[in-house]
């Protein structure tokens, strides 16, 4: 299914979506958005999938450790190689 947001309300909603899923909007604005979503299934899907997109990325694992050889060269370049073992 594809969707064109011809409706003015849909277009207005689009500009606020990111802040809405972050919970960064005033309650009164949230009320307007939620009322619109109750009447527009397509916008509701866009909001839900946008929220899920952000959640998925945020759920990814923390940064993996720097590869050992890269780490060793970094400490060598910074003239800290002698401390590498102490802080591991």
């Amino acid at each position: 299914m594809t969707h064109t947001h011809a409706n003015t309300e849909c277009r207005k909603l689009l500009a606020s979506l990111s802040e809405y899923v972050d919970g960064a909007l005033d309650e009164s604005i949230c009320d307007v958005i939620e009322q619109h979503m109750g009447e527009c299934e397509r916008c509701e899907i866009v909001v839900d999938t946008l929220r899920k997109t952000v959640e998925l990325y945020r759920s990814l694992a923390p940064a993996p450790p720097v590869p050992d050889d890269v780490r060793a060269r970094l400490f060598a370049r910074l003239e800290l190689a002698d401390l590498l073992k102490d802080i591991s």
Partner: peptide, 21 residues
């Protein structure tokens, strides 16, 4: 000009977590 409008309207939130990841 505003934002690019969403085109893909598929509710995939219902997919189980193990399929999403």
């Amino acid at each position: 000009d505003g934002e690019q409008e969403p085109v893909q309207i598929v509710d995939w939130c219902c997919l189980p977590e193990e399929e999403l990841l």
